[in-house]
Design a protein around this nucleic acid. Structure first.
Lengths: 241, 241
DNA sequence: GTGGTTTAGTTGTATATACCACTTTGTAAG
DNA sequence: CTTACAAAGTGGTATATACAACTAAACCAC
């Protein structure tokens, strides 16, 4: 029996099911108990149980077949690597030690392209930081971030060499990055990029442009990253609607 | 008032709302009618109206704020370009004329890496096709697809120079591609690739490896594509958690 | 003005119920 | 043995209802 309390009952059941799956008690391809069975076992109504299951189906952990039952999905290989993360979290998910070297930071006026991406007027002041990103001590990427929110000038006082920008935005500034649109392109390294990344001019690099959104699809960050092509792969999952 | 019939009522309402948004009757940032208002207007219960709205929220078209209402999301730039598509559909979404030149096709035995991706035994026979992909008549990519399903050998008889592989799989073979995991990497073009793509050896190319899944997360296709770096950008959207 | 309370309106959670559509399985009829 | 039908179990759709949590605005007391 689930209890009433600050945590909704559908959410409690959801986490119970997730635990059964990730712990291996319920195996991929195998059916989970029917909705009606779950109601009885945990003492809740069918609509509530359905809400738990529906959300897990949307996450891809389960799938339903009408007339047959609900089943555990086959696990995907890249599961941890397709979320929106900052560099620090991305490296942790890949079991690499993240490092950062701040090249420069300043308040700058938005140019036309940046203003369009962030939906602001050209010329408005933004926080800009350019950082060299390291994985296990080796240069991996150069990242240029432009940040816009009310009060973003306080970022000038932060130590971005040791603090995760995304963690700061979420925890200290109440601007959690929630979604991002990205654009990926293969390029050749220019002279400056090659020097920083310790590769040769003309080596392959992955250029990523990202617009990050917070609540209500409010644009928060516009970033341009150049990754070493030989040391970084990008993972994603696509759905057919 | 919505009517009972083969189309569920929640789905009818969903499409009505979608139409109001895409037609511009309801503007980004503006609130839509409250759930209770929609119930009354269209003569259905609140839970049914909620189902319509919930699905549109999951799609990102709307967002909710407790105590305030439900609102139309700001449109995203890349909205059409982040679905799972075959090359043909991808080009259509980008307003380019797709073209295809089949380089070769055969039934081949799966090597170890392919077998792992498709969850089959090494040595099993697969359909393999290698195609040069054109956009507005210009070479854009080389795509190598390995397909596995019961009866895949009949693909040998198809004209893949003029038929979309994904359309064929879905419409004729009952194997709709539903999801895909992708891996992207920046590389330099090799001699053969450069010749086909009409670029120089050492130019930047985007290497994409894709595993496509059909029903029940059954692996269907393992593909390796090499895109010209100067003519192709890949778009994606990321969510936090 | 400032701070608290009320009130009305919103979404969020939850129950109980009913019937539909589909799949599997067992059973009876041929 | 095969076919046809019935029954039971599954998820899919839908209604009616209730209360909780949260927001904004109006109101009142200080």
């Amino acid at each position: 029996m689930l209890k009433n309390g600050p945590v909704p009952r559908y959410y409690q059941l959801k986490e119970i099911i997730r635990q059964k799956v990730t712990s291996g008690q319920w195996n991929p391809g195998a059916p989970i108990p029917s909705e009606r069975e779950l109601c009885e076992q945990y003492g809740l109504s069918r609509m509530t149980a359905r809400q738990s299951i529906t959300e897990l189906v949307n996450e891809g952990l389960l799938y339903r077949e009408q007339g047959k039952g609900t089943f555990v999905s086959q696990p995907k290989i890249t599961q941890q690597l397709i979320q929106l993360t900052g560099f620090t979290e991305d490296m942790q998910a890949r079991s690499k030690r993240p490092g950062t070297q701040v090249l420069n930071h300043a308040m700058v006026a938005a140019d036309a392209a940046t203003a369009a991406a962030l939906r602001i007027k050209p010329g408005q002041l933004l926080f800009k930081v350019q950082r060299l990103r390291l994985a296990n001590g080796e240069p991996l990427a150069i990242e240029t971030s432009l940040i816009n929110f009310i009060g973003c000038e306080h970022l000038m006082d932060e130590d971005l060499g040791h603090e995760s920008l995304y963690q700061l935005l979420e925890k200290k500034y109440g601007q959690p990055p929630l979604e991002a649109d990205q654009e990926l392109e293969a390029r050749l390294a220019g002279e400056d990029e090659a020097r920083w990344l310790k590769i040769a001019k003309g080596d392959a690099v992955l250029l990523i442009r990202r617009t990050t959104y917070t609540d209500r699809n409010q644009p928060l960050e516009f970033a341009r990253s150049v990754y070493r092509g030989d040391k970084y792969r990008f993972y994603t999952r696509l759905n057919r609607k």
